Amino acid sequence: MFDNFELFLTTLLRGAPLTVAATGGGIVLTILLSFVAGLAMLSRSRWVRFLARVYVEGWRGTSEVVQLFWIYFAVPLLVGFQLVPLWAGILVLGLNHGAYGAEIVRGAVNAVPRAQHEGAIALNLGPAQRIRKVILPQAFVEMVPPFNNLFIQLLKSSSLLSLITVTEITNQGVQVLVPNYTGQALTIFLIMLVLYLILSLVITVVMRLVERWAARVAGRPATARARVTGELGI
Score class of each variant (00 low, 15 high):
V144K: 06
L91V: 09
I131A: 07
L29E: 00
F81T: 09
G26N: 08
L9M: 09
E64S: 12
E231L: 08
E211H: 11
R14H: 09
P113M: 08
V48A: 13
V75A: 05
S159H: 03
P137I: 03
T30V: 00
G38I: 04
A40T: 06
T11K: 10
G230N: 04
F35K: 01
T11I: 15
V194D: 07
E211S: 05
P85T: 14
V56T: 06
A222I: 09
N180K: 12
L42M: 10
A74K: 10
A102Y: 02
L136E: 11
E168R: 05
L154K: 04
R216M: 00
L195A: 10
R227Y: 10
S63D: 05
G24V: 08
T30F: 01
V92R: 08
S63M: 05
P17H: 02
L150D: 11
S159R: 02
F69Y: 11
R44H: 12
T10P: 01
V28C: 07
P221Y: 02
R225L: 09
I188R: 09
E103L: 07
L136A: 11
T167K: 09
L161I: 14
N96Y: 15
R44A: 05
E6M: 12
A214E: 05
Q67S: 10
N180R: 12
Q82P: 01
G26W: 03
H117C: 00
P221C: 00
R130G: 02
A16F: 05
A122I: 04
L29T: 00
L42P: 05
R14Q: 14
F69R: 09
K156D: 12
F81A: 15
V79M: 07
G107I: 13
L77I: 15
A37F: 14
L155S: 06
N148L: 08
I121G: 03
I31F: 06
A128S: 12
G26S: 07
E142Y: 11
S43R: 09
A222D: 14
T223Q: 05
R130D: 05
W70C: 08
